[in-house]
């Protein structure tokens, strides 16, 4: 098979299947990302507030939220009066 530089993924796609786990993982992340970003469009939210709205364990919300901060979709906002919880907002 002739392989065109810049399109070599097609070569590997012919040779191996993408695992179902990887596909499911992507689907799940995209859904969670959309949900978090949609909620943050409405207002700045804390982890606790996001957890209540999404219905997902807090530690998972922290993981996805921090990943979205790392990838530049979300930024850290203000901390509450008790200096305990930050709010998070969309990065503009």
């Amino acid at each position: 098979m002739e392989v065109e530089k810049g399109k070599t993924f097609k070569y590997l796609r012919e040779k191996r299947d993408v695992s179902q786990e990887a596909k499911d993982n992507l689907k799940s992340f995209n859904q969670i990302k959309k949900t978090i970003l949609d909620l943050l469009k409405e207002s700045d939210l804390t982890v606790d507030q996001l957890t209540q709205k999404i219905g997902m364990p807090k530690n998972e919300v922290v993981f996805y939220l921090m990943s979205l901060v790392k990838f530049g979709f979300v930024q850290t906002g203000a901390i509450d009066d008790m200096d305990e919880y930050f709010s998070y907002k969309l990065k503009k």
């Binding site: 392989v3 530089k5 810049g6 399109k7 070599t8 993924f9 097609k10 070569y11 590997l12 796609r13 993408v18 695992s19 990887a22 596909k23 993982n25 992507l26």
Partner: peptide, 22 residues
């Protein structure tokens, strides 16, 4: 590669075309 879905997005974005799935 274990988590890659072989969508090719990385290859399209790579300016020096150094991603090589072969």
């Amino acid at each position: 590669i274990g988590n890659c879905i072989l969508c090719g997005a990385c290859e399209k974005a790579c300016p020096p075309k150094c991603i090589d799935f072969t």
